[in-house]
Simulated assay, not measured.
Amino acid sequence: MEKEGFDVHSATSSPSALEIFSSLDIDIVLLDLNIPGTHGFEIAKELLSLKKIGIIFITGSTEQVDKIVGLELGADDYIQKPFDFRELLARIRSVLRRLDHVTDNSSGSESEAGHLKAHFGNWQLDCLTQEISGKDNATPELTSHEYFILLALLKSNNRVLPRDFLLNAISSRNWTPYDRSIDVLVGKLRKKLQCENGEYIKTIRGQGYKFCSAVTWSD
Rank of each mutant, 00 (worst) to 15 (best):
Y147S: 02
I149G: 08
I149K: 11
L150H: 11
L150P: 13
L150A: 06
A152T: 11
A152W: 10
L153F: 07
S156P: 00
S156F: 05
N158V: 06
R159D: 09
V160A: 10
L161G: 12
L161A: 04
P162R: 09
R163F: 02
R163K: 13
D164N: 14
F165H: 01
F165R: 11
L166E: 05
L166K: 00
L166N: 01
L167S: 04
L167M: 12
L167T: 11
L167D: 12
N168V: 00
N168Q: 08
A169I: 10
A169T: 12
I170C: 12
S171Y: 00
S171M: 01
S172Q: 05
R173W: 02
R173A: 03
N174F: 01
N174T: 11
T176F: 04
T176H: 12
Y178I: 08
R180Q: 08
S181F: 00
S181E: 01
S181Y: 07
I182T: 03
I182Q: 12
I182P: 02
V184I: 10
V184R: 13
V184P: 03
V186P: 01
V186Q: 13
V186E: 06
K188V: 14
L189N: 13
L189M: 15
R190V: 01
K191T: 06
Q194H: 15
C195V: 14
E196N: 15
E196D: 09
E199L: 12
K202D: 08
T203E: 04
T203M: 13
I204A: 13
R205D: 02
G206E: 01
G206L: 04
Q207L: 07
Q207M: 02
Q207H: 07
G208C: 00
G208T: 07
Y209N: 06
Y209L: 06
K210Q: 12
K210D: 00
K210I: 13
F211L: 00
F211T: 02
